[in-house]
Each structure stands twice: as C-alpha cells, then as structure tokens.
C-alpha cells in the first residue's frame, strides 16, 4: 500500500510539478492574529499565528496556536463545513492552553481563503442557495487524494515547529466533515498519528469502496467517535459498522451516541435548528471535549 501510495504521488507530481522542484521556504507566517475577544480561563499563555502551509496543491492558509513556552504534542484540527473561522480558533486556543500545539487549516484553500462563510450562525441548511455555497468547498477537500496529501503537509508543518515535541504522537480531531478527514489523516500517516477524534462526523460509513470505515486496518491511532442523536437515527448501523471495523483491526474504538445532541452540537457558532432551538449544546459539548482531552492525555503521552 505504501509503495502504491508513493508511486501515485510520484505520478501526481509529474516532472515540473512540486516533487521535481526543490521547494523550500514553504510556510510563511502570513500575518498576526489578534486575540479573538473570547478570552477566559486559560491554563497557560498561548500564542496564535496565522501561517501558510505549502501542499502539493497550493498554499493553505491556517492558524497555529501553541503555549507560549515549551514543547508540546501537536494536534491537527479539521474544521466542519464552515471552515476556519473565529469559533474554530477559540476551540484551538482552549486546547492549546492545556498544553498542545494546534494547527487548524482552512480545508478549502484550493478554492477560497478563510473565512468562507461570513456568518455561520445565520446559515440556513434548508435554503438551497446557502447549501450550494458549500458544494464546491467540500468538493475540493473531498476529492480523491486531497486530504491525504494535506495530511502529510500538515504533519510536516507541525514537525518543523520548535513548539512541537516530535517524540510524542500527534492528535487529530474533526467536526462534521472533519470527522471523515480525521480518519483519512490517521490512515495516511499511521505511524505519526496517535489519536483521532470525530465529533458529529459525516460520511464515516458509506457503501462506497472508499468509505472511511474501511480504512480501519490502516489506522494505528486510538479513535473516539461522538455521534449525534439525529445522525444515529438517520443511519443507525453506522456505529455498529465502525465498531466492527476497528475491532476487526484489533484497534477497538470508543464510540458514543449523544442522545440529547444534534449534528453540530460541539461548535458554538452553529445556526439554530429548524425548531428554533440551538444546535450547540454546551453540556454535551463539554462532555465531548473532556473525552477528547482524556484521549489525548492517554494516547499522546
């Protein structure tokens, strides 16, 4: 598999393309991020820097957030369909304050700079025009091989940072579509990723030959899946197939259905549900977050 992957990458990066060039100086801090105005109890001071990460497909705008001093395990955060934005930065800052060096990329860099949606809280999933905005964005990162190429670039970025402890495994977490990207990342760089967590992940189990759950044999990371009640209702066998896949791979995953939580419950700037209730569910979001931190503490030691 690894040989095939290298061969494919060689083809993808044919003469004249990235692999043939000696590309260096690839990730340039592009600007200085201001505090996002949501400061609260931080464990340690953190530094937030806007960066650019070169990938085989272009330059990805991203943010790198880490404790101001020391070296720490690296974490890659895959955003949901609304991409890199203030609420994702808040998630990263809070995690960094607990002792992690966090990279949050704009997953849609191939087609647009972040932020890609002006106001996620007013996004209307029932409106076809709103939904159509997401199609080209999600299509770009879900294209075959895109996430895998990005995963290598992002791992390389983290490993190049003095704030990242390279002796410790890297964690990756994702929300909504980011859950699928977590699995692709863990499978693409299996010896570097020690933990993966998916919260209200979308498209984790499909009937397609490239369904993410079929990647379980390639994944060495300890995995956690938090599933929304409405996602579970829509696809009740997904959790079973996930569990079976990881058990068969002799790497049992922890899988929980949050019976009071709707798809998107972990992300504070989610729009309201059709019934007017907020999607964001703070108690369950905090519970999910505690599972994430426990996973990282155990698996990234």
């Amino acid at each position: 598999m690894a040989d095939e992957r290298h061969d494919q990458y060689e083809k993808d990066n044919a003469p004249g393309e990235l692999s043939r060039r000696e590309f260096v100086a690839l990730s340039v801090a592009a600007g200085l991020a201001a505090a996002a105005g949501s400061a609260a109890a931080a464990d340690v001071p953190v530094t937030e820097t806007n960066v650019q990460v070169q990938t085989p497909d272009g330059v990805c705008d991203a943010v790198f957030i880490h404790p101001t001093t020391g070296t720490h395990p690296g974490v890659l955060v895959w955003p949901d369909a609304f991409g890199l934005r203030p609420t994702m930065r808040d998630i990263g800052k809070r995690l960094a304050a607990e002792g992690y060096a966090v990279l949050i990329p704009n997953p849609f860099y191939r087609v647009a700079k972040a932020p890609v949606i002006d106001n996620p809280s007013s996004f209307n999933f029932q409106n076809p025009t709103d939904r159509a905005k997401l199609t080209p964005l999600m299509g770009s990162i879900n294209a075959p091989g895109a996430a895998e190429k990005d995963a290598v670039a992002f791992m390389a970025f983290l490993d190049a940072q003095p704030q990242v402890n390279k002796a410790q495994k890297i964690g990756t977490q994702g929300y909504c579509m980011g859950g699928r990207l977590v699995m692709k990342t863990a499978a693409a760089v299996p010896d570097r990723v020690g933990a993966g967590a998916s919260f209200h992940g979308g498209g984790l189990v499909t009937n397609d030959p490239d369904s993410p759950h079929l990647l379980a044999p390639q994944i060495k990371a300890k995995m956690y899946f938090g599933i929304a009640a409405n996602d579970d209702m829509q696809q009740p066998d997904a959790k079973d197939k996930l569990r079976e896949a990881f058990t068969a791979a002799k790497n049992p995953a922890e899988i929980e259905v949050y019976s009071n939580a709707q798809h998107g419950w972990c992300v504070p700037d989610m729009p309201k549900q059709a019934n007017g209730e907020p999607i964001y569910n703070k108690p369950d979001a905090e519970r999910a977050r505690s599972k994430l931190v426990a996973l990282y503490k155990a698996a990234l030691a």
Partner: peptide, 30 residues
C-alpha cells in the same frame, strides 16, 4: 475560551522540507 494571556507572535519564516521527502519520512516505503 482559552487564550486569556495570549501573546502575538512575531512574523517568521517557517521552512518545510520537500513534500515527497516528508512523505517518505512519515510513511516509509515498505
């Protein structure tokens, strides 16, 4: 959320090595 004592990093240049070399490092050919 976190970042209560946030500082701002100076602009810096971060070097990432050749991507294919990184691939070989991260996913050694078998």
């Amino acid at each position: 959320m976190g970042g209560g004592h946030q500082t701002v990093a100076p602009a810096n240049l971060i070097i990432v090595q050749n991507w294919l070399e990184e691939l070989k490092r991260l996913v050694p050919p078998k």
